[in-house]
Amino acid sequence: MINHLASKIVEYVRAQDEPNGMRLVERKLAEHLKVSRSPVRSALKMLEEQGLLKTAETGGFYVDWDGRTVPASLTDPQSDDDDEAYMKIAGDRLSGDLPDKVTESELARRYGLTKAHLGRVLRRIAGEGWIDRLPGHGWEFLPMLTSMQAYKDSYRFRLTIEPAAILEPTFVLNRSSLEDCRQHQQRLIDGEIWDVSNPDLFDINSRLHEAIIECSHNLFFIESLKRIDRLRRLIEYRQSLNRKYAIVRCREHVRLVDLLLQGRMVEASEFMTNHLSSVSVMKTVAD
């Protein structure tokens, strides 16, 4: 998803008359691409790593290329092989079979990948925030939730902050963002859920919860949830619900957004509590 968004941002920049030096505003890009700001931020960071953007002194990014040349990684669509390699690395990291620090040559040999193929996968992982490039040619995996107890604790923490965020006095609806999230959930209900990958399903669902908590304008709530989402990404792939149950959760997401859009905040907060409680039980009951 991050690679796809990066490609869309490149298309947007190339459509401008004089792209070089143009400032990119995260909020406007999110509205243009009809996604939340979090994945846009990851895509911008990925483009910065590839030398197409630079960080502005006042924050944010500006274009630092002429808009004509585009990296092959952004013009070549991701293949099923990319997803397979991604999931193998995720699974091995979650099971503890990969050390904290790795080199590209080690990963290429282990998974039988070409340099270009591995590069696409590593950029995707870096964009999602669970690996960082080290000086030189190495990479370091970032801390993630790996135990079921920590996973359960993450849901207990979410039960504390997410319902409370809806009742914050600073809570103001971002209607366009929530409506966009609702559309994504409805498409899943209408059939897309049977084809979407576990990573993409995680992104769609976590984006909805982050869009809701962003309406609180409470920085501590917002950053806490985003950090939890980064930490739980890998274990969520293993704990993903059977799709027939996941559809029920998508319907609950739609109901939750409808309550918010109708201004029924107390009901929405209570609904959030029930939603998170039932999901956590379903995902951890086998333990």
Rank of each mutant, 00 (worst) to 15 (best):
R68N: 11
M46H: 06
W65F: 07
L53D: 00
G51S: 15
R68W: 07
G67P: 08
L74M: 07
Y62R: 09
P71H: 01
L74C: 05
E48P: 14
K54Q: 11
T75C: 05
W65R: 04
D76N: 13
T58L: 04
T69H: 15
A72L: 14
F61Y: 12
A72F: 12
K45N: 08
T75M: 15
D80W: 07
S73I: 12
D80Y: 03
K45C: 07
G67S: 01
D64Q: 13
Q50M: 07
S73Y: 05
S79E: 05
P71L: 05
G67M: 02
E57A: 04
M46L: 14
Q50F: 03
D66M: 08
T55I: 13
Q78S: 11
E49H: 14
T58M: 02
G67I: 00
V63Y: 00
S73W: 00
A56H: 12
L74R: 02
L52N: 03
T58Y: 00
Q78G: 06
Y62I: 06
S73G: 10
A56R: 03
L52M: 14
Q50S: 04
G59S: 10
K45Y: 09
E48K: 12
T69P: 08
L74N: 02
L53G: 00
D81A: 14
D76Y: 10
D76I: 14
D66E: 11
V63W: 01
K54Y: 08
G51Y: 14
G59M: 10
G51Q: 11
G67Q: 03
P77A: 07
Q78N: 11
G60Q: 08
V63I: 10
Q50Y: 04
L53M: 11
L47R: 02
K54F: 11
D76A: 15
D76P: 03
E48Q: 09
T69E: 10
S73C: 01
Q50I: 01
V63G: 01
P71R: 02
D81N: 10
T75I: 08
Q50A: 01
M46P: 03
L53S: 02
A56E: 14
D76T: 15
D81F: 15
Y62H: 07
P77G: 07
Q50R: 10
K45E: 04
D76C: 14
K54W: 06
S79W: 08
L74S: 05
D80Q: 07
F61K: 03
E57G: 00
G59L: 11
V70S: 14
P71K: 00
E57S: 02
F61C: 09
R68I: 09
A72T: 14
A56F: 07
V63Q: 05
V63K: 05
K45H: 05
G60P: 11
D80T: 10
T69I: 12
V63T: 04
A56C: 13
W65E: 00
D66L: 08
A72P: 07
Y62E: 06
L44R: 02
W65C: 01
Y62F: 14
G60H: 05
L47E: 02
A72N: 11
A72W: 08
D66W: 03
E57C: 06
D81C: 12
T69Q: 13
P77V: 11
L47P: 00
Q78H: 10
P71E: 09
L52T: 00
V63R: 01
Q78V: 11
K54G: 09
T75K: 03
E57V: 09
A72Q: 12
